[in-house]
């Protein structure tokens, strides 16, 4: 059962990431490949906060949200100058820049040494040591994020966002300050990814920069491409498919060396086939 609980925890974390990214790409139409950067910053906030600063887990979540909000505000403004595929490419570049900082700013992040011994969340005197308890906490946050997503989706903020996704100029001409909306959703998306990062750091108890490279951002992007853009359900389904795919492949009984390459081929094929046949994703409502 440990195995399934372990997978479920990761599924929960990736669902959170997918939901936050889908707010940005699906609702906002801002195709960013930089999500891993904010995921990483959130993870490091928790790691450093809990090991060096002695904060509790939930305090570090708030710390992570603040740091991510500030950085995302700046990054979002830089990205806002670009459109469409340029936005994506520049976001990829920003992801590489953040990774480079995490890797080389050794005095703060310890670079490739990573940070060890990250503790588990505690509420009062209860500590979430058991994986089952941890899973429960992750589930609560995931559901909360899902609800938040739907709430934004149905709110007037969400409607304006989706309108500017379809036609920014028209939305502007109707009097909405689209730059403001784009900035808000970028910051919100980053902050929520940071929360997922906090859980990741606490769960694995040891983080290093290698988990937060561009390829992670591409992986997150693949999740929502497959699951569906601008869909909360799609985010969850996408995360489920991509987290469990390697396990399913394994049960089919492929030799272990080729299994990994095959897995990579399937990811690639998913992207390609989705783009050819269903660019909005399985449950998606927005087509890039």
């Amino acid at each position: 059962m440990e195995y399934l609980i372990n997978l479920a925890i990761l599924f929960g974390i990736y669902s959170m990431l997918a939901l936050s990214l889908n707010m940005l790409i699906g609702m906002g139409g801002l195709v960013s490949l930089a999500q891993a950067a904010f995921y990483g910053i959130g993870a490091y906030a928790t790691a450093i906060g809990m090991t060096s600063l002695g904060f509790g887990f939930f305090t570090t979540i708030i710390l992570g949200i603040i740091i991510n909000a500030v950085i995302a505000f700046v990054v979002g403004k830089i990205l806002a100058r670009f459109q469409g595929d340029y936005y994506a490419i520049v976001s990829a570049g920003l992801s590489i820049i953040v990774f480079s900082i995490l890797q080389n700013w050794k005095s703060v992040t310890h670079g490739p040494l990573g940070i060890f011994g990250i503790g588990k969340p505690e509420i009062g005197s209860y500590a979430f040591y058991s994986n089952t308890a941890f899973l429960g906490l992750v589930a609560v946050f995931t559901v909360a994020l899902y609800v938040l997503y739907q709430w934004i989706n149905k709110s007037s903020f969400g409607r304006v966002l989706k309108a500017l996704r379809e036609d920014e100029k028209l939305t502007q001409s109707m009097g909405y300050k689209t730059k403001h909306y784009k900035s808000v959703i970028f910051v919100l998306s980053a902050a929520l990814s940071g929360i997922a990062g906090a859980f990741f750091a606490s769960y694995i108890a040891f983080i290093d920069p290698s988990s937060f490279q561009l390829k992670e951002g591409i992986f997150l992007f693949t999740i929502i491409i497959v699951g569906g853009l601008s869909s909360a359900l799609g985010s969850i389904v996408g995360a489920l498919i991509l987290i469990s795919l390697p396990e399913v492949l394994r049960f089919i009984g492929l030799p272990y060396e080729t299994a990994a390459q095959l897995q990579q081929m399937i990811y690639g094929a998913m992207l390609l086939l989705m783009m050819i046949f269903k660019p909005q994703g399985l449950f998606g409502k927005y087509r890039m």
Binding site: I5, N6, L10, E247
Partner: peptide, 20 residues
């Protein structure tokens, strides 16, 4: 033998699978 691509979360999935 299972592949982890020298990635922490994959290694964690592997060891958990090994056990269960």
């Amino acid at each position: 033998v299972e592949d982890d691509q020298y990635d922490l979360k994959k290694a964690l999935i592997n060891v958990n699978r090994f056990k269960s």
